[in-house]
Design a protein around this nucleic acid. Structure first.
Lengths: 349, 349
DNA sequence: TCATAAATGACGTACGTACCTCATAATATC
DNA sequence: GATATTATGAGGTACGTACGTCATTTATGA
């Protein structure tokens, strides 16, 4: 009645331990009929292999790679920190995680890094990169080599097998829309939308969701076009200044991209923070400070620690072909106000 | 350079494997000086014992108990479901979880159940019960027997060792207050506060936080006293009806307790749902439906799955004396609107 | 200094699985 | 039906730790 072991399985399937092993680990030399018999026995006695013991026996170190953009904004820093922490935590679970960087805006380079990986002894890859044909193809090449891949934070809808770990950006946009509508109360005016680039699928999806809600309020709120900064501080400043000056009363600003340093700086210089409802993405020390001092009104975020751990778990279960606990892997769209802001993680050495 | 094992530890401490074992497992017969030497070696070589292997060798089944209220509202159902699911998941990690029920309003009975537990072969207990002297003492008795205990969902601030797994209710109240203030826009009127009983510490804390925010808006919003239903449908109906009729325009309703079936029913019958901002706690199928149909405006919740798994992890690490990943254990105060509502978990057989 | 107790070492078995080798049984091929 | 091929069985060792027994060393005390 205790947990059935491989011995029990062997008995139940009326085969030897060796055959059970062959079936469980997909080794050759077993008749199809026997494979079926073993699988039936697995069902019958409700056998689940003890992965602790299996990993112990394998003595295998799983090598997991996070491929991240090579610029260092606060969000990426957070990810790096969480990856490092998870690494320490997982050291004793035969899993090693490391980070590889590639320029976010250079698909060639990203694809090159991805191709380089497959050569190494890597067991799973989490890729955070904008969706482009080059990257998609590189991912498909990885999958062709049976290397588990997941899309991390940035969805890769055209790379079939790549499970996506991240939030639904369209729903995130809708959430911001709803908050924007509610928080602006009865006020009339313009809502600005600012992002790094609309090339990115994430931005497109967020905008889509945002507009879906805002259009219900179009008698009161006038939503401007997406203004792009291209990650350039200089341009950021100009764009934001221009928008703030030229538009009719600005009652809301949606900062669609997580890197908002420059934008917030200009907004505060122009004393707009108190006048408009400002909502952005990702909880970093910068957005924390802005929530506390009231410059920002809400932040939509995803739990980066959860994101990283979930990725590792999903990759792990892909590697060992065990079905994960789906519910645990759902990444929630979190709404953070000053009042429900979680404490900042004490950084560890 | 690979993970150091007990053998490496023995070598580093210049003792035998047997002595390492004695130290690691707190067995007698080791001089203090030697214990210190081994601990120093642990630091030096950064040894962490492989719990998978350890548990495998122990062949020990950890028995974890969740002590829950014995009435079945939707929130409790959710917890039961998550405990069951975690149970399946943990079956192969030598951990067995089970549920014990006790009447929430009968401290004697609760204490009795707690005392009963300690006799059995239980390794850890998660207790969800209102804080009372009787319960607190029973918890302290458990701790005196070295049985790890955590306070689950309901804080037990006076039972020292009992780690609390749940949200900060005062912050949750503040969050509701902020949302209430924002969502009511410029409107003036009364805000009703409804709960089961103000005896419970959770309600007191939520109210405290709520008031802290609402008082900033006292020129516009008039917050009523806490109305108690005592879990009685009849009384619920009367209280809510009376309040809705007698008060000046009701612009907001804070449902402070998670069991809101009756209250929402009355509110909808009286056609108040659309007129007032309604905010409640815990995401259940009932509150989901109300968010979708617009009857409720926001729900403050804690991820029940996370709650349960976190409890199990914390208990597990208390049992095996390993420090947990603190950051993973922080329970967030989640704000759920219609737009960011996670999909309902598909129930499994 | 010797008897005695306490501390330590040496070694074996077990946990559940992986993986290897070799022998034997069942089946397919001509 | 003999032979080649494929399927299966039998058995061992290993992973890192727990735990038991027994022998041996070291410290303690009178």
């Amino acid at each position: 009645m205790d947990k059935p072991t491989t011995k029990d399985l062997a008995k139940a399937a009326r085969v030897s331990l060796a055959t059970v092993d062959r079936v469980l680990n997909g080794r050759a030399g077993v008749r199809q009929a026997t494979v079926v018999r073993v699988h039936k026995a697995i069902e019958d006695i409700n056998f689940v292999r003890n992965m602790s013991a299996a990993n112990l026996a394998r003595k295998k170190e799983y090598q997991i790679i996070f491929l991240l953009p090579d610029h260092d904004d606060e969000f990426i820093d957070l990810i790096k920190k969480e990856v490092a922490e998870s690494g320490r935590f997982l050291a004793h679970e035969h899993t090693r995680v490391s980070i590889v960087r590639a320029p976010a805006n250079d698909p060639h380079q990203i694809a090159k890094e991805i191709d380089k990986l497959s050569a190494d002894k890597v067991d799973g890859v989490a890729i955070m990169a904008p969706e482009t044909p080059l990257v998609r193809d590189a991912i498909l090449r990885l999958e062709a080599r049976n290397l588990p891949v997941i899309a991390f934070v940035s969805h890769q809808p055209n790379a079939d097998g790549a499970y996506y770990v991240g939030i639904n950006n369209e729903a995130a946009g809708r959430t911001v829309g709803q908050l924007m509508a509610r928080f602006t109360g009865q006020r009339r005016g313009t809502v600005l939308v600012l992002t790094e680039t609309m090339q990115s699928r994430d931005s497109q999806e967020r905008r889509l969701g945002f507009d879906a809600i805002m259009e219900k309020y179009d008698t009161r709120l006038n939503v401007g076009p997406s203004m792009e900064t291209y990650g350039d501080p200089q341009r950021s400043e100009e764009v934001v200044k221009m928008a703030l000056l030229s538009q009719t009363p600005v009652v809301g600003i949606y900062l669609m991209h997580h890197d908002i340093r420059k934008a917030m700086q200009v907004i505060e210089e122009m004393d707009m923070a108190q006048k408009a409802v400002i909502i952005g993405h990702e909880l970093t020390s910068l957005t924390r400070a802005r929530l506390i001092d009231g410059a920002m009104d809400a932040v939509i975020t995803q739990d980066v620690g959860h994101l990283v751990r979930s990725s590792i778990r999903v990759l792990g279960s892909k590697i060992t072909r065990v079905s994960p606990v789906a519910s645990q892997e759902r990444i929630r769209i979190e709404i953070i106000l000053r009042e429900n802001m979680p404490e900042e993680k004490s950084s560890q050495t």
